[in-house]
Each structure stands twice: as structure tokens, then as C-alpha cells.
Design a protein around this nucleic acid. Structure first.
Lengths: 164, 164
DNA sequence: TATTGTTATACTCTATAACTATA
DNA sequence: TATAGTTATAGAGTATAACAATA
């Protein structure tokens, strides 16, 4: 199926991305893309995407949050939040409830159905990650978590562009 | 400018993504997105994007590589490689040279100008990462690198979808 | 028949800008 | 005038599908 008399093999495959392996950004991207598709597949049977899963988690943890606040936590624009919340509302998982003190804003709430959905989704993703990172033991996973959080924090602090 | 009498503060900001922090995927995404924009800004004055930077690195390390091979290393489709190579060729950084043994294929080569460009880009990104991850010491950066590589490898091994 | 590179097209995610209704 | 949510639109990145030239 792929044995065509080995017609050159000009490239030793182990070294092709040698120059990229030195960069944290490259390894981070590889690792993330590796799990992204799998994650989407895990959530699909629950009617969730990565974006709606994340939003649901945040509203679970912060009932009454506004869409603008949600956009800040998720690091996306308010216009993007609309689509995500529309999706969750259509699925019956969250509700836009009026805010008495500010009639422009909505307080987002997770419905009972949404809470049940979250419980299932959280468990599915936990199982998914346990399987995906089976080659790392608990200590290593903790270490990775810690380093990722600190790397993100360090990155945020030393950015050149906006908000230094 | 943003002090409107603190009109509820319904959400304690430290806990909003509490339920997401448990997931490696979430922390990986956060960390990666944190550096992605900065990376793009670092490369822009050199006329490179993350995609063309990566391709240039691979062709540097593997002169004569074909576009199909490049697509495998970069984990993108052949149709996507065309755009990237077009871009690098237009910039005078790489060349499509004919392959005598297979007239369908091109052997990709980095031009002298491309090699000079790579040297500058590599240095710029090294400096960029050194600044961005200043809060991690050398040991911690090595540990992060190692864990990311192993996480990606573990992920690739345990995927459910294609190629188990 | 299968493969290389190519084109055309579509889809996802996100950003920008303009609008409305409130404040 | 500024802000919350909304809409329309556009861009980047990548995917799929079909094609010509070659194997």
C-alpha cells in the first residue's frame, strides 16, 4: 500500500522537525492539537463543542455571570459569546435571565438539564484525558498542569502587544 | 472610566474557570493561545507567519523534502502546503526544484536568502520565548518541554479516531 | 490505478464594525 | 457619552473534493 521500492527516502523522519523541537511554542501547539480533535469527538455525542463546554463550565461556576464577563473569562469577543450562548440556550442548558439593576444585561443561569449535562460532560472529559495521558503518572500530570499555568501566567506578564 | 459604583460584582473572578482548570486540555489551550499572538508579532517584521516559519524550519532541516512529506510533518493537508510554499517562494526563501526520478514531485530547497532569514527568525523566536517564559528557570523549561513531548506522544498513541 | 501537486470550495473560530436599547 | 448585547461581515487556518500530469 505504501511500499513503492523505497524511492529515495531523502528525509530521515526523526529529524525533520529538529529545528522546531527547541521551541516551547511548537511543542505546546503539537500537544494541544493532538488532543483537540479527540476532545471534540468526546463532546459531540453530548451535543457540545469545546467552546460551549467551556462556557457551560464557567456559567456553572459563576451563576449570574453576564455575557461580557463571560467573554473576558473565555478570552473571546462579546460577539462570539452570543453564538455560544445561543447554542447552549437552544440546547436547553442555559437561560438568559433579566437583570433588574441593568436592563441591557442578561444574567446567565444553568438549567437543571444543563447541570445534568455538565455532570456527564465533566465525567466524559475526565475519562478522556485519563485515557489520553495514560503514559504520564499522577505526579507528572500535576507537574504539567502547574507548568502550563505558570507558563501562561509568565506569558501574560511579558507580552509585548496589548496589556504589558 | 470603569468605576460605575461597583454594581454587583456577582462573580468572584478568581473562581470563574475553576471547573476548567482541572483539565490539561484547557490549560494547554490557554498557554498556547497566550503565546500565539506574540509569536505572530515577533515573526511579522520578518515577513513570516507561524505556518511559514514552521515550514521553513522543516525544509532547513530536511533539504529536498517533498510537499507531501512536508504536509505529514506539519500535520496539514497537501492543499495547505501549496499556500505555505507559495508564500515562502514568493519571498525568495525557498525553491521548488524538479525531482529527476519523479516528475510529479518537487524537492524543496532553502535559498541562501532563506537561510539568512531562518537565522534571523530562529534568533528572534528564541529571544521571544526567553522573554515570555522568564518566570520559568532552565530546569522548569526543560521539564515543560519534556512533558509536552510526552503528552503529545501519549495522546497520539491513545487516540480513538484515526490511527489508534 | 495510485500519487503529486494544484485549484476551488466550504467550514470553524474569531475579529471588526455598526447598530439598538439601555445606562 | 458609554456600555450590553446583537448582527453582519471578513479573515485565518484548515478540510474536502475534483482535476491534470505522471507513476
Amino acid at each position: 500500500m505504501k511500499e513503492k521500492a523505497a524511492p529515495e527516502k531523502a528525509v530521515p523522519p526523526k529529524q525533520t522537525d529538529m529545528l522546531l523541537r527547541q521551541f516551547i511554542g511548537y511543542n505546546m501547539k503539537r500537544a494541544y492539537l493532538q488532543i483537540q480533535d479527540d476532545m471534540a469527538e468526546t463532546l459531540e455525542p453530548l451535543g457540545l463543542r469545546i467552546g460551549t463546554f467551556s462556557a457551560l463550565a464557567v456559567i456553572m461556576a459563576s451563576p449570574g455571570i453576564s455575557q461580557t464577563q463571560l467573554s473576558e473569562v473565555l478570552n473571546i469577543k462579546r460577539s462570539g459569546v452570543v453564538v455560544v450562548v445561543d447554542d447552549l440556550e437552544r440546547a436547553g442548558a442555559v437561560q438568559r435571565t433579566p437583570v433588574q439593576t441593568d436592563r441591557r444585561a442578561y444574567a446567565l443561569q444553568v438549567t437543571p438539564a444543563g447541570k445534568a449535562l455538565w455532570a456527564r460532560a465533566e465525567q466524559a472529559v475526565q475519562a478522556h484525558e485519563a485515557a489520553l495521558f495514560a503514559d504520564l503518572d499522577a505526579d507528572e500530570r500535576r507537574a504539567l498542569q502547574d507548568l502550563l499555568v505558570r507558563a501562561a501566567r509568565s506569558g501574560a506578564k511579558h507580552r509585548k502587544g496589548t496589556d504589558g
